[in-house]
Amino acid sequence: MKTVHKLLLSSVFAISLPLLAMDLQQAMSALGPAKTQGLVGEQPNGYLGVVSSSAQAKEIADLINQARKAEYQKLAAKNGIQLSDVEAIAGKKAIEKTEAGQFIQLNGQWLKK
């Protein structure tokens, strides 16, 4: 009987999966293609921005930005500096690392690098 319940539960879970929101791992996997497609880009504040409005782009940016902020807060606390300083440093590095053809935000404008 336990096997039947497990099978039933796994089937219900598999059916409901597409209805669930994206998780951080899925967002990380989707980030490269989203950048290549021009959906999201790097901003000077250390966070992703939505270049081409879509629900998927917003979800990717939101999930990754939440994780980035948590990491930035840890770094700020560990080093005794302001969160805004960590964000600015991270933003500069992210823009520098952005590949040619992907979007970055400079002076409030989205530009292809």
Rank of each mutant, 00 (worst) to 15 (best):
T3S: 12
T3W: 08
K6M: 09
L7V: 15
L8E: 07
L9F: 15
L9I: 14
S11C: 10
V12F: 12
V12L: 15
F13H: 15
I15N: 08
S16C: 15
S16Q: 11
L20D: 05
L24V: 05
L24S: 00
L24F: 00
Q25F: 13
M28I: 13
M28V: 13
S29W: 14
A30Q: 11
A30W: 05
G32P: 01
A34R: 11
T36F: 12
Q37S: 14
L39K: 10
L39H: 10
Q43M: 13
P44V: 09
P44F: 03
P44K: 01
Y47M: 14
Y47S: 01
L48W: 03
G49L: 02
G49S: 05
V51P: 04
S52W: 08
S53A: 14
S53T: 11
S54L: 12
Q56P: 09
A57F: 11
K58Y: 12
I60D: 09
A61F: 08
D62V: 11
D62P: 02
D62E: 15
I64A: 13
K69V: 10
L75D: 00
A76Y: 00
A77K: 12
A77S: 06
K78A: 12
K78C: 09
N79D: 08
Q82A: 14
L83C: 02
L83P: 07
L83T: 01
V86C: 01
V86N: 03
E87I: 05
A88D: 08
A88M: 11
I89M: 10
A90T: 01
G91N: 13
K93R: 11
A94N: 07
A94G: 08
E96K: 03
K97D: 05
K97T: 06
E99C: 02
A100T: 03
A100E: 10
F103M: 02
F103H: 07
Q105S: 01
G108D: 00
G108W: 01
Q109C: 00
L111R: 09
K113D: 02
